[in-house]
Design a protein around this nucleic acid. Structure first.
Lengths: 138, 138
DNA sequence: CCTATGTTTCGCTAATTGGCGAAATGAAGG
DNA sequence: CCTTCATTTCGCCAATTAGCGAAACATAGG
């Protein structure tokens, strides 16, 4: 019952549904991208992600300083939870917030993963959040 | 989003999952039977049932003083929630609490609906709860 | 009308949860 | 080592929620 409740509780929050919907359309996102999307503090974002991961709905791929989250593969998800996750994705797809999120994601993830790697190599910040100082201003 | 969240929040509670599982195997139960099953106060039981009904997962059939709850039919359930309800039923079916509940239900609903009507006609209490005084003791 | 009884609503309290900022952690890179 | 920065953990407060008993409602039957 613990596992089952962990799943249903994980889905009982608007921000966590937004996270799932975003990952469903984007495939993979790093914490700071999700943070920017939701407009929450880093700690709150991390908490939501850990609740979803704890429930087995998400998995992490750690890559240097970055943590990339994505929806877990069918086989990784416990207690045959895949159907419920897909259900949430399809039901949330038409929600106003989620549609707006998708637009915002286009801007947020305009910086592709490859570019991110280059920026990382150059020592530039991950997200456009944080200080408003672009490269030149340094 | 309000509807979607109402559904996921309704499912994010152990007692409400027990209610759904019980109704899934019994078909229909009155409030006091559910109250006896969960061991909660009448007011708490009623609250849980109203949360589930509000989310569109349950429907009520009022019959005299009694209120009989059951899982809503496919067409009545909003936002194509039927799959998620069935998922909860199948996932909870193997849970220890739910298995025990089913045994307890046998005892609780040993008094069949027909018998209940007769008892009602005779002015006997609905449930074995309340005063411990059987018919003869009156 | 009065009583009895099943259910619901209303306050209230305790527990849980979501949010934040500060501090801790971990990984690069000088 | 020391700094930087993405992430996580911790401690705290505010909002939500589950639980109860008391009171209110509703219905059936003297």
């Amino acid at each position: 019952m613990r596992t089952l409740l962990a799943i249903t509780k994980a889905l009982a929050d608007q921000n966590r549904i937004r996270i799932i919907a975003a990952l469903h359309s984007s495939g993979e996102l790093c914490v700071c991208q999700i943070q920017e999307l939701l407009g929450l503090a880093a700690s709150s974002t991390s908490k939501h992600l850990s609740i979803l991961a704890q429930a087995g709905i998400l998995t992490v791929r750690k890559d240097g300083r970055w943590a990339h989250y994505r929806i877990a593969d069918r086989e990784e998800i416990p207690q045959e939870a895949a159907p419920i996750v897909e259900w949430v994705c399809s039901q949330s797809a038409s929600e106003k917030v989620v549609l707006q999120d998708r637009k915002n994601l286009d801007a947020i993830s305009a910086i592709s993963r490859e570019e991110l790697c280059q920026r990382q190599a150059k020592g530039i910040r991950c997200c456009s959040s944080a200080p408003e100082t672009p490269v030149a201003a340094k």
